[in-house]
């Protein structure tokens, strides 16, 4: 039985599951033709499905595509083979982060976002913006300032985070930990590409 090489067992397991789902992709391109950002992607969503079918996971995880997806689900609702393209791209983002792929803007955003949720149980936009800009474009914060100020004036940005009560926060932390533990413990599954089909 073949397993995907070169990834942590958790990632290999997740990729195997994804490969199984995309095995029925018929490369029709409906997803790409429906995607608002496909022209700006290096691989169209359809081409990305092809990478996954071909077992070229590393290319897929390096692609701009997974970070250019707006999660609009246009591809998913139209896919004639009922492949959940949007969700697959989301999972690939998670794998890229967990496997330590080079940090993209989207990755910084995701990490900062979930870090805040884990810390407070709720979103706190000012911190998100600061963390994002510190890593990605320090000067960008200047550009964002006028709108930030306007929103602050209208009371649409709160200066302080709203935290859940301690008990709730503990629950949130446990959720994150339990999910992470399960991700790591995911059992290796046979790679469908190498299985003899009946």
């Amino acid at each position: 039985m073949n397993h995907i090489q070169g990834f942590s067992p958790a990632a290999a397991s997740a990729l195997e599951k994804i490969a199984e789902e995309v095995s029925v992709c018929m490369q029709c391109g409906t997803c790409a033709g429906s995607c608002p950002t496909a022209p700006a992607m290096d691989y169209t969503p359809r081409a990305l499905m092809r990478l996954l079918q071909a077992g070229l996971f590393d290319e897929a995880l390096h692609s701009r595509t997974i970070w250019m997806c707006t999660t609009c689900y246009s591809c998913t609702v139209r896919c004639p083979r009922d492949i959940h393209v949007t969700d697959i791209l989301g999972k690939l983002r998670g794998i890229a982060i967990a496997e330590g792929y080079a940090e993209t803007a989207g990755m910084t955003f995701n990490k900062a976002f979930l870090g805040i949720v884990r810390r407070y149980g709720r979103m706190f936009e000012p911190e998100l913006l600061i963390r994002y800009h510190l890593r990605q474009e320090p000067l960008g914060i200047v550009g964002a300032a006028p709108i930030g100020l306007a929103l602050l004036q209208k009371g649409k940005i709160s200066p302080l985070p709203e935290r859940l009560p301690a008990e709730g926060l503990a629950q949130i932390r446990r959720i994150f930990e339990a999910v992470e533990a399960r991700r790591k413990a995911a059992p290796a599954r046979p790679h469908p590409m190498h299985e003899v089909s009946r």
Partner: peptide, 20 residues
């Protein structure tokens, strides 16, 4: 005591999104 649903970033791990 509701908590954040995790928005788009949570979709990187379905179980996390479901749990949040």
């Amino acid at each position: 005591g509701w908590n954040c649903c995790g928005a788009t970033p949570a979709s990187q791990n379905e179980l996390l999104m479901y749990a949040l």
